[in-house]
Design a protein around this nucleic acid. Sequence first.
DNA 1: GTAGCCTTGACG
DNA 2: CGTCAAGGCTAC
Length: 461
Amino acid sequence: MTFLMEYRHNVDLEELCPVCGDKVSGYHYGLLTCESCKGFFKRTVQNNKKYICAEKQECRVDKAQRKRCPFCRFQKCLHVGMRLEAVRADRMRGGRNKFGPMYKRDRALKQQRKALIHASAFRKESSPLLVSSTHQRDYTFSGGFQPDTIPQSAVLPTAQNDIISHQHPSLLPSNSPGATLYQYPSFSNWTVKSEHPNNCAISSGSAAGIYSDNLFSSPPQGSRMPRLVMEFLRCDPDEIQLQSKTTARLKQEHSGSNKHRNPSTFSIMCLMADQTLFFIVEWARTSIFFKQLKVSIWFNPHKNNHILIGRIMYKQSQHILDSHMYSLVQVELSDISSLAGPTLASLIQRGKDLVEKLSVLKVDRQEFACIKFLILFNPDVKELEDQGFIESMQEQVEGTLLEYILSTSSQHFGRFAHLLLCRSELRTLSSLAEDYLYFRHLSAEVPCNNLLIEMLCAKRS
DNA sequence: GTAGCCTTGACG
DNA sequence: CGTCAAGGCTAC
């Protein structure tokens, strides 16, 4: 407790600009950036500037060299997620735009994550629910997953700073790429203020008791796998069935009225996504919690979409891991990149980065099952009923994930933090993908009778 | 052209 | 009425 009192400064503003590593001055055009990159992005978009790279379009962009190659700087701005739409065509000053809620959500998420990580990292005595005494461990930083083992691009830009700033400075290898790029904020002056005080500590929330039905009790003595994880696995969708249904539907579409023309890659992707979505809705509906959920939750377009993207990512990472072919359902993202426009290409690149990260982390089925439920129980989506239930579920699942990691990984703390970051990147990516899909839908480019689109439209209407 | 500081104005 | 993310201004 006294430890937490030592954290003072505004957490967000201690982050570093994902484009150049300079000090962040606030949210600009979609994410936290520095003042200069904000200005640069604005000038470029407002004046419709076209730059040319004198090198190989891979110039390093940092505080010292950001002026050297505006082409690469702008590319990086787009890659990290700065939004063209946030630059106003009418140049109107002041006010707020549609990104306001997104900034708020992002802020809440960061606070929640930090509070959670602190709570789990420094909690001397854990609740019986969180970690059973059989595998209680030292919670101090073990070095865990070093930043230099992850490709720079594999980490969510805002999260990147997060990872780094959560490492004790002495644990950072001074010769790591990250260390030479950025200066890290000192670890010992943060403030921990969460908009979700319930999530600050992972313990058995009082609300949980109302709903839980003893479901979340500690695993039986001697058992390594938390009981909840086993439950998660039990309700995992049947992969083989999903694949055969998707293949069948692809064949059916192809042999139907569209026989004469070749389906585009994009339409195949939409169809596959659509089919997967049916499964996800079914998964959410039949999951162990369904009897306690209101319909609005399991049929929530936003969450299901997050899980859909996550599923594809997870599959891809599995694919990289063991080079196992998943029949027709597998899509080679690299093949699509070459055909895609800049927005989709950037999305795909970020997706590939996340896949890379998932595969480096070797995320297993159990962990991914937890991540799926964490997304389903996202307390930051406020339109849902049963907010208290959702928050307590989120706590429970986070606790379960941590417990599982503690029992399986020697780099438990780093791993836990990284998995939460993957979840956040997944949410970000999914929102971007959603915007993109909606945009293409408005241009009448998305196939009809698409559940995904119907959900998106319902959400936005 | 860059970047730090200033002004504006919707939103809570 | 304060906040803060837009655009604007201007010295460098």
